[in-house]
Nucleic acid binder design. Structure first.
Lengths: 160, 160
DNA sequence: ATTGAAAGAGTCTCAGT
DNA sequence: ACTGAGACTCTTTCAAT
């Protein structure tokens, strides 16, 4: 499953490294993985064609910019059929950075990033509560992020 | 607040663009923002020195690699003082990609990324349930990710 | 498929404004 | 502070293996 793609260990190694650090040069990464820079280049081009590498982004320390209130909100819907409409409304709120439609305790689950509690209160009270279809919400404020990392795509035991 | 840093509109514009697309060249970004490539370079160097730009990463389409089961797990602890120990244990499980210590309904909140339900079941039953200090957990499986985006750092009204 | 080298493009530095 | 040009480094292409 998914391995119609036919990726080998080198592909996964490249992904694993550059998922965390896209700055490393092809020459240096090649040295590290015992191939030439040209080979790294060919592999990355292949991964781009496959749609596995879709771009790159700068890591921004949003905390340093003042966005240090991370909050998770579980949302109960009046009817789960209202999901699409509610999602459309939630997308208009820039502080909501992620939204998932879920099974389990909540119907939807959102992540909110704010500069302070005042701004959070504004989003929770003035924005969320006015959206039709939301029955109620439960708020989890993050006191500390223990870690936030990437998936381990390179499982040594699985990949040849 | 946070603006001992003295960032101007140009800085925020650079951050906003490159947070989503780090591939754009300084020359092109300069054109877009009506300054020279050299100025973009100077600003990015400044942002790196300030610790606001901390690196860059490749965007990997993990779904295409088979990791298409995203799950959120709320964790109830026996005592909240066990937080550190539990976090240490959870960090050893590679499928757990994110962990927050939270106020509210749960004591801790984790995100798990798996290849299939079998693997998820393994993590939930064999791994999580054996960690001392965890009283019980609640699982939210994501059926769909509506969106996942960056914070809006550039608020036109706020920044001169 | 991988390599190494040449061509092309981008980053980085700096003197001038 | 910003600019533009030169030096430098990295990416990209390609002929050879």
């Amino acid at each position: 499953m998914s391995q119609k793609l036919n990726l080998d260990k080198l592909d996964y190694q490249i992904i694993q490294v550059m998922m965390e650090n896209a700055e490393i040069s092809y020459a240096d990464l090649g040295k590290k993985l015992f191939v030439s820079g040209g080979t790294i280049h060919v592999r990355i081009k292949k991964l781009q064609e496959y749609g596995i590498v879709t771009g790159s982004r700068l890591n921004i320390n949003t905390k340093a910019l003042g966005f240090d209130v991370i909050t998770f909100v579980g949302i109960y819907l009046e009817k789960s059929s209202m999901y699409e409409d509610v999602a459309t409304e939630l997308k208009k709120i820039p502080e909501i950075v992620r939204l998932n439609y879920t099974t389990g305790t909540y119907s939807m689950f959102a992540e909110i990033v704010c500069k302070d509690i005042r701004q959070l209160k504004h989003v929770l009270h003035d924005e969320l509560q006015n959206i039709k279809g939301i029955e109620r919400t439960e708020t989890l404020i993050s006191l500390e992020e223990s870690f936030n990392r990437n998936v381990l795509v390179l499982d040594e035991e699985e990949i040849n």
